[in-house]
Design a protein around this nucleic acid. Structure first.
Length: 431
RNA sequence: GGAGAGGUGGCCGAGUGGCUUAAGGCACAGGUUUGCUAAACCUGCGUACGGGAAACCGUACCGAGGGUUCGAAUCCCUCCCUCUCCGCCA
């Protein structure tokens, strides 16, 4: 969420950001709602002040008639307070509604346009050339008995699957490789809840309910199945006030991810590419405002090192404004080469790293106190909102596609990248 | 799941209707003093919003939400959470 005061001050910038994102948002309604809230809060404060004054004057002996008049006046004041509180609550609800539709600012260097306008900024490795007809990951899985989509469909529904045999060990190996790399880089390791309260989901900028939602809800509770550990890692900082010397915080979280994939059936959704459940190791960082840009580069660097270790060709994209999520100020995706995409292979998204600046932090109440400022318990310690970033270390299903398809051999076997071998315990699938 | 006890400021902890818009202590910050280490004393010390150049002033907040009352940390109701014991269980 943006700060309504900042919205009022920098209205034109926000309007520009909405234009670049191709979103139509009524900014003036939000500004008006904020002014209304401020006005009503002032009125409530004043009414409360009168009421407090009135009560203090009652702390003495009074004649019955005087006492009665005083009591009547007290009732009147109380009703006034209640009425203004109701007005204020309604206005605050309206303001929240207006503000949640407004996306974050956009970094000036982010490319204009939509999905197809993202800018390729780096490329590593070359798509493999096979002297034989390569198979896609579904065919490879069939050949080596690695996946069971049919049973997944029968037991849980379309787009659910079972991993089997070496695929199971590869899932664990990919997790372990990612976790070891992150630990070496100073990340704190977490295994996180797969459910979160709708309120937390909302605070991270995801929409937990409604037609378009990507999020599953648990019936008769206020819980959601998380779409990413970004939600639960971010939730760690609910109403937190951190010391400056604690920053940056770098957290790695393993979770299962659940997505309804509403409206996405039939689009690039072959096999494991788009499924309702997968396992992910997520990176989450909390920084001072001046450090978030460098942290975004750092997160992408880790993602690149991971795919280099898997010996998979990839490219890095600076995502265009029209394709950014509402909380993201800037986003880099990594696309790995996938042999099975399109006619002759293609790039498929495997990771995504976003700098959400203070957009999520404001809603979560995640702040920090500068070193110069006084500690809690003493005077004058202004707090500032932290910046929050997230990035995929590894989304197992998509990494699995890339590994299987890129490392298939002429004899039909699949070579396992060296970096994974210590963790999975084999160097080849098949033969 | 059953039974009991609790949730007060960064921490500990007092507080059963107006004399507390939260005592006292710890921690923290500034100062005074004692020729070391250290201690003693004084002062200050929550968060958010609004007003003010500032000193400061106003309002809200004692787990959350309702209720009673002219007045609630304090009484009533609902919910959440924590702890102890029992049961069950991976």
């Amino acid at each position: 969420m943006l700060d309504p005061r900042i919205l009022a001050e920098r209205r034109d910038e926000v309007a520009e950001s909405c234009r670049r994102r191709r979103m139509r948002v009524d900014l003036d309604a939000a500004i008006g709602a904020y002014e209304q809230v401020a006005r009503l809060r002032g009125a409530l404060d004043e009414t409360n002040r009168l009421r407090n004054e009135h009560q203090k004057s009652a702390q003495k002996k009074m004649e019955p008639a005087e006492r009665e008049a005083h009591t009547a006046e007290g009732r009147r004041l109380k009703d006034g307070v209640a009425a203004r509180e109701a007005e204020l609550a309604a206005a605050e609800t309206a303001l929240r509604g207006a503000m949640t539709g407004i996306p974050n600012f956009v970094h000036p260097d982010v490319p204009e346009g939509g999905e197809d306008d993202s800018r390729e900024i780096r490329r590593h490795g070359e798509p493999p050339r096979f002297a034989f007809q390569p198979l896609d990951h579904l065919q490879l899985a069939e050949k080596h008995d690695l996946l069971d989509f049919e049973s997944g469909t029968r037991v849980a529904g379309a787009k659910f699957y079972y991993l089997k045999n070496e695929a199971v060990l590869l899932e664990l190996a990919l997790q372990r490789l990612a976790v070891e790399m992150l630990r070496a880089d100073g990340f704190e390791l977490y295994a996180t809840p797969d459910l979160a309260k709708a309120e937390i989901v909302d605070h991270l900028g995801y929409n937990p309910r409604g037609e378009e939602t990507q999020i599953y809800s648990i019936a008769d509770t206020d819980l959601c199945l998380v779409g990413t550990a970004e939600i639960t890692l971010g939730g760690l900082f609910l109403d937190a006030v951190l010391a400056e010397r604690e920053l940056p915080r770098k957290l790695a979280g393993i979770s299962h991810c659940f997505r309804t994939e509403a409206g996405s059936y039939g689009r690039e959704s072959k096999g494991l590419y788009r499924v309702h459940q997968f396992t992910k190791v997520e990176m989450f960082a909390v920084t001072r405002p001046e450090d978030s840009a460098a942290m975004l580069e750092h997160l992408v660097g880790i993602e690149e090192r991971f795919f280099q270790a898997l010996d998979v060709p990839y490219r890095v994209l600076d995502i265009a404004a029209g394709d950014l999520g509402a909380p993201a100020y800037r986003k880099y995706d990594i696309e790995a080469w996938m042999v099975g995409r399109g006619e002759a292979g293609g790039w498929g998204e495997v990771t995504s790293a976003s700098n959400c600046t203070d957009y999520q932090a404001r809603r979560l109440g995640a702040r920090f106190r500068r070193e110069g400022a006084k500690a809690p318990g003493s005077k004058g310690g202004k707090t500032e909102f932290v910046h929050m970033l997230n990035g995929t270390a590894v989304a197992i299903t998509r990494a699995l596609i890339a590994v299987l398809e890129n490392h298939q051999q002429a004899d039909g076997s699949i070579a396992i990248p060296k970096a994974l071998q210590p963790y999975c315990g084999f160097d080849r699938i098949g033969r």
